[in-house]
Computed example of a mutant assay.
Amino acid sequence: LYGLHGKLLADRKERLLEQLKLADRRRQRVEQLSGGLRRRVELAKGMLHQPELLLLDEPSTGLDPGARADLWQYLLFLRDELGVTIVLTTHLLEEAERADRIAILDRGRIVAIGAPEELKATVGGDTLTIETDQPEAVIEALRRELQLEAQRFDHSVRLELPEAHQWVPRIVEVAGESLKSIQVGKPTLEDVFIDKTGHRFMELEVEASS
């Protein structure tokens, strides 16, 4: 097993069982374990030979929130305490936020790469989202009255603006009675994805599952 045997193998197994909180399950068969515990066993197997690089394909898929939190606690321990380089794929943008560097893929093509904060800084200022029953009419009114360009996503209209909060009163006036709500926020990775691809991340997930 990776050329390991004897006391060295036994010591590493014991250490991994403790690190991954599996010591009390040592005599159980893997097929008797929950999905989260099975994922820990897979990690233990992958770490047995103390690799410098760990490759993981959507490791948190199918895990409940508690198991996902435990998984990420261990991954961050590997990165921060043991210096392991981890390359993983994920469909969860909140997980991507934890990475040192991320590559955003859209239909198999890399559309952006960099640290999360660097990527968010590429979005033009704040993001402003308008919920409305008449998105096309609002987009046209914004273009005509305020010379602002916006994107439509279902029943919402999205803009990128510096100091977006200063625009709120004028946008409310232009949108009129069709306005349901308006929200201003700092750019997120979802905003980066929209900026680079022209569509929402969730739309790609729905397309992939259909």
Rank of each mutant, 00 (worst) to 15 (best):
E42H: 09
T90C: 11
A150P: 00
A67K: 12
L37W: 08
Q19Y: 08
L142M: 01
V172N: 05
R143S: 15
L63V: 02
L75N: 11
P116R: 10
L55G: 00
H5E: 14
S60E: 14
L189A: 13
P116A: 10
L105H: 10
V41G: 06
L9S: 07
R26C: 03
A23I: 10
S181R: 12
A99M: 06
G46Y: 10
Q166I: 01
T197L: 08
T188H: 02
S181V: 04
F193M: 11
R109G: 06
M47T: 04
F201G: 01
E31G: 01
Q50Y: 14
T188M: 03
V30W: 03
L119I: 01
E177A: 14
E118H: 04
G124R: 09
L204T: 12
R107F: 13
D133F: 07
D70G: 05
F193I: 05
E118M: 02
M47Y: 08
L37F: 11
L56M: 00
I102R: 06
P65T: 07
G62T: 07
E95K: 07
Q151E: 10
S60Y: 07
A96D: 13
T85M: 12
L75W: 04
M202C: 05
T90R: 10
A44E: 04
I194R: 13
G35N: 02
L88K: 11
E145R: 09
M202G: 08
G35C: 06
V138H: 02
R158N: 09
E14M: 05
